[in-house]
Design a protein around this nucleic acid. Structure first.
Lengths: 175, 175
DNA sequence: GGCAACCAGTTGCAAATCGCAATCGGTCTG
DNA sequence: CAGACCGATTGCGATTTGCAACTGGTTGCC
């Protein structure tokens, strides 16, 4: 939006786009939670983003070319947000941040399991997941068959929830 | 400082620590510019950080365990900031962000060259540079000898500056 | 010893951003 | 046609940002 770039440094420019507390969380929910509508992003957000901020971030991410928006044929008012290639390639950034967080910060077990698997899988697993995202968001069919990285992460998450969740209400928050 | 964590997600927790426009730039200058004093960080900053914000971010990074501060024996008032292991391990995060930025944003040639080399070098080069940072900041002697990654990046940067800089004042900003 | 330059911050203040709650106009469902 | 659902927008107080000036101290130099 407002252009006065502070410098032409790649790190600075990246921070000017996604260097805030919410943008990457929105992208995280799209990537790992497959949230595609405004309402999904709003109400299933672990961190309770408020609607004006979500609206603002979606607009910024659209302008930055990280997301695209299409009309949902099933509902005239509903929009479907998709990642662009540029957005999909934020996965390694997010994975790297998650790996650092899970190592040094007080991450809960159920929310950390995905980060650990993704770290252990390394760049190869990231690339595989990016191919899956290209299929979901760009319609580019992937080569590999069988269970996806996304499914494997989700299953691992749910196993932790089930194991820890006996009688524990906290564990039933997410789908 | 203020604790009310929004969630125990590794990505969220990482963003709560370094998810702003300045923290990672300070760390970048420490890593790639070897700035160790307040004044160095303040005056050699490409993006012209102001002193109150720098002071605040240094305090936050100290509290987060990413930096440590020691007195400089050569000057009673001078402090020396060093990276902790935790801070050094932010290098892959920064490298990944730089790689993304250099691919998708209007990065200047001289400021992009390091990011490109670091991307081409891959995780192996990052690990090597992290060993160099452990030597500089933690006093842990590294095994490998010969020119360091830091030196190679710096040399490449200066070559671009020299090549592009014929009569161009912009090129003589940094050391 | 005195003075200018340097050091790490701090303070005051205006502007911008954040975050909550309420609300809006339109759309779909029963 | 009523009520739930949809993607936002608005109002407003609290917080954060960014600039400029300043503080209290240290050091080098003549």
């Amino acid at each position: 939006m407002n252009d006065p770039k502070r410098s032409g440094c790649p790190i600075n420019l990246t921070l000017e786009v996604v260097g805030d507390k919410w943008s990457l969380l929105v992208i995280r929910d799209i990537i790992f939670g497959n949230r595609r509508h405004f309402r999904e992003l709003l109400t299933h957000s672990e961190e309770r983003i408020s609607s004006n901020i979500l609206a603002d971030r979606l607009k910024t991410l659209l302008e930055a070319g990280i997301l695209t928006r299409a009309d949902d044929p099933t509902h005239k008012q509903k929009g479907v947000y998709s990642l662009t290639e540029q957005g999909i390639e934020l996965l390694p950034v997010i994975a790297q941040m998650a790996a650092w967080g899970v190592k040094y910060l007080p991450v809960t077990e159920e929310l950390g399991i995905r980060a650990q698997l993704l770290r252990d899988g390394g760049p190869k697993m990231w690339a595989e997941m990016m191919d899956e995202l290209r299929e979901i968001h760009l319609g580019i069919k992937r080569r590999k068959t069988g269970p996806t990285v996304g499914e494997r992460l989700q299953r691992a998450y749910q196993e932790v929830v089930a194991r820890r969740g006996r009688g524990d209400a906290r564990a039933r928050i997410s789908d």
